[in-house]
């Protein structure tokens, strides 16, 4: 099957799944659609981490853009009086892109642990600033007023359903769009950069410029996830930029794997479901469980949950391996 047909078949599958999820809005209990909303939004953020992992970079500070997206929505609603959800999401994403253009200029010089720790430092700077900003509610953050949707202002259950549907549509669009990206020349060259930057340079390309573009894409999609989270939960606080939040994104990225654009979505849904129950059952050992699972994943399932899915479809050794697989 050639590439165009393969893309199309993925896109049909994704659209069908999205339609199924959308239809579920009227069937599933409210708690479940809320959980899925947050999980899908989180998956978008994790997709940003995965984009960079495929290029060989581990961002330990993706919460920076998650938080910017959330605060963009919150401030747009509160200070600028914007009510429309699409305008708010666009604002948050644009703010993140702007920030990424500045930070990316600096960060694309760095690789490996330097990149990881510098992204972490940047997100912690934002955290520190937000905690000290009393106008933005300091550590408590503030509530985000329910938005309108192109002039429509839903009430009660309809509001939650609208947010859920919006998230499903955006997630489906992101899967389709980024699937094309990952399979495009540019997306595949990112893997080449991960594998051997010197060779990429000698092929006539600038790894730094390409990584810069990738970084900005990652920032945009993560900010969109942050914006959706803010709208869905109706609240934002500085913890969105905290290191532990970034760590969670890295965790989900490794849990899902980096082999496919759908992997972070599987990872985020599995993560959210387990967390919902684990937080109730064992709140004091939740982090410990995360740590143990993370080590187990690295030792025994380095390509993440996606490798369990893809094993059935492709011949072994034929899939582009994630860096951690043989590292």
């Amino acid at each position: 099957m050639n590439i165009t047909n393969r893309l199309k078949s993925t896109e049909v599958t994704v659209s069908a799944l999205a339609a199924l999820l959308a239809a579920g809005a009227f069937l599933m209990p409210a708690w479940l659609s809320f959980l899925l909303t947050l999980a899908l939004a989180k998956a978008l953020v994790v997709l940003g981490v995965v984009l960079q992992m495929r290029a060989g970079l581990v961002s330990f500070g993706q919460a920076l853009f998650y938080c910017i997206g959330g605060y963009g929505v919150g401030l747009g609603a509160q200070s600028l009086g914007i009510a429309d959800a699409f305008a708010l999401l666009a604002l948050g994403t644009a703010a993140a892109v702007l920030l990424a253009l500045i930070c990316g200029f600096l960060l694309t010089r760095y690789r490996e642990i330097f990149f990881a720790m510098l992204t972490l430092a940047l997100s912690m700077i934002l955290y520190g600033v937000l905690v000290k900003s009393s106008a933005l509610g300091s550590t408590d953050g503030f509530n985000v007023a329910p938005p309108s949707f192109l002039g429509w202002v839903p009430e009660g259950d309809a509001r939650k359903q609208a947010v859920y549907l919006l998230t499903v549509v955006i997630a489906a669009a992101a899967v389709i769009g980024f699937n094309r990206y990952l399979k495009s020349g540019l997306g595949r060259v990112m893997e080449a950069i991960r594998e051997n930057e010197i060779r990429v340079d000698y092929l006539g390309l600038s790894p730094r410029r390409l990584l810069f573009a990738n970084y900005v894409f990652a920032a945009a999609i993560s900010a969109l996830g942050g914006g959706l989270t803010a709208i869905a939960s109706g609240h934002i606080d500085p913890d969105m930029a905290f290191w532990a939040t970034s760590g969670e994104f890295v965790f989900i990225a490794i849990l899902g794997g980096t082999g496919h654009v759908a992997a972070p979505f599987i990872g985020a849904i599995v993560f959210s479901v387990i967390r919902t129950f684990a937080i109730q059952e064992a709140p004091h050992t939740w982090q410990m469980a995360l740590g143990l699972v993370l080590i187990a994943l690295i030792l025994f399932l380095p390509k993440g949950l996606w490798s369990l899915v893809s094993r059935k479809h492709t011949k072994a050794g034929n899939t582009p391996a994630a860096k951690e697989a043989t590292a």
Binding site: I3, S184, G185, L186, G187, L203, G204
Partner: peptide, 15 residues
């Protein structure tokens, strides 16, 4: 793909 341009061939599928 690197030799081709890279733009706009970058945006089309690699394979």
């Amino acid at each position: 793909v690197a030799a081709e341009g890279p733009w706009p061939s970058f945006l089309r599928p690699l394979d």
